[in-house]
Nucleic acid binder design. Structure first.
Lengths: 86, 86, 86, 86
DNA sequence: AACGCATAAGTAAGAC
DNA sequence: GTCTTACTTATGCGTT
């Protein structure tokens, strides 16, 4: 990118470079945390816990209970209609 | 969990609770960063960049360049065999 | 691929071509069925059903109940430990 | 669903049941075909093909070739701007 | 026409 | 070492 090119192009290039660097930095951080999570599961396993069950609990707790039950209403209605009522 | 249960169980429960809380805290952080990444892509889009192409660049840069070209070779070979040579 | 190349190469190329064509044919079929499914949801919606709830029912029913409850045992144990018993 | 409920509800329930059964039947078919595809890849692998490259070829062929090159152009442009020109 | 969601593909890790 | 399973990414679809 030299001075023979229109300025707008080099500006866009700089902008692009900057965006990508920000993304890459953030992805690094994310990967670091993912590694930490893995470590916790490994530690749990080493202490005799079933990691598969662990993951399910985490997953279940993740569903926001408010929103979940909001949907539950419609769901229950349909399930009753099908004779699937719990 | 009352005093009628063996002590070892309550210890395990405490340990479990602790593990799960650590995981949940880390996952929150991870989700936060994922959100930040999304924001950067949104910003890029708002500035007229093609986010799909952006993602491809990030992805390409991620791959170890040596290993990348190794794959490219196999791919080219197959494509030639199919008469799909670029 | 001409007769100046070793025969084994052209054989491999034929084999490759054949494999790919089989895959492509199957993927076409699969896409056709996916389209049919979409149509059924559209029809359901046209009859006043909430497609989101519909999808959830289908999803719930998909989990093989036997295997699901098998896992449920461990899960319940852990949830009790956390004071999350339903 | 007994005669104490309004007739419209039981009609809706029947309709719903029917819709769900149709969806489930189609999803079964779809899963069957997905299995067939997996088998073809397995066969390819057994014959010494690199399945990863295979998948990429199938994927590439899927894209409308015109649209593909359109994307390639944008990508090249961005890569040049970053000094990543191949 | 653009946004977010939901499914589907591909990738990488863990179990047997 | 293979094979499944889980996670991540990507594409396409429905909605607004």
């Amino acid at each position: 990118m030299t001075e023979t090119l229109p300025q707008t192009e080099s500006v866009a290039a700089d902008q692009l470079k900057c965006l990508i660097e920000r993304i890459e930095r953030l992805e690094e951080e994310k990967a670091g945390i993912a590694g930490d999570i893995k470590d916790v599961y490994a530690e749990a396993k080493a202490n005799g816990f079933d990691t598969k069950a662990l993951r399910r609990i985490v997953s279940i707790r993740k569903q926001d209970h408010a929103e979940r039950q909001e949907q539950e209403a419609i769901l229950d209605l349909y399930m009753q209609a099908l004779g699937m009522a719990a």
